[in-house]
């Protein structure tokens, strides 16, 4: 048992204060967790994380846009000569081979959000031009010139048969 001298010791009080503070801080952090989590996407928003796209109606040489997670995804049906040119080119300031970006040479799937500040680039003959600050992307969605730091993002997707892709799942 402690004698009265050690009971009066300031060390005991300091320890109790520290312990109380630590338990209190842990409690506040634990209580804050559900509140912070409640601001993250709810389950119905997460359910929108997967989009199916039908490729059959997209003519050769054309691009279609589908919505995935509220963002535009460009699906380009590339002509063989365009695909070949892209496979031959290393890209611009963020070099990446086209073979890694397109699962099939005739289909390019990229998220249509400029990697500079989030505008949607406009389709051109050579690729895309962002109307906000003039970033230029080639037909593989790779940055060629302008302020954007990186290539257009390739989302997770996989082919279901030859005419359908599922975006949001590998």
């Amino acid at each position: 048992m402690s004698d009265s001298k050690s009971l009066d010791s300031p060390d005991r009080r300091n320890f109790l204060e520290m312990a109380t503070g630590a338990v209190g801080a842990a409690g506040v952090a634990a209580a804050a967790w559900p509140f912070v989590q409640s601001m993250n996407p709810s389950s119905d928003v997460l359910a929108k994380g997967i989009t199916e796209a039908d490729l059959a109606p997209i003519p050769l040489g054309e691009s279609h846009t589908v919505a995935w997670q509220g963002k535009p995804v460009f699906i380009v049906h590339r002509k063989p000569e365009v695909a070949a040119a892209m496979q031959a080119s290393p890209g611009g300031k963020d070099p990446e081979p086209d073979q890694k970006r397109a699962k099939k040479p005739e289909w390019l799937v990229v998220v249509g959000v400029c990697t500079h500040l989030g505008c949607v680039p406009s389709r051109t003959e050579e690729g895309w031009l962002c109307p906000c600050h003039g970033s230029v992307y080639d037909n593989s969605g790779r940055i060629i010139q302008g302020p954007a730091p990186a290539n257009l993002e390739v989302p997770l997707y996989h082919f279901v048969g030859n005419d359908k892709i599922v975006i949001g799942e590998a």
Binding site: P34, F35, Q37, S42, D44, V45
Partner: peptide
Amino acid sequence: QHIMRSVNYGWLI
């Protein structure tokens, strides 16, 4: 109902 079912910890709040 959305808060109770879909929002993370919405039921708790």
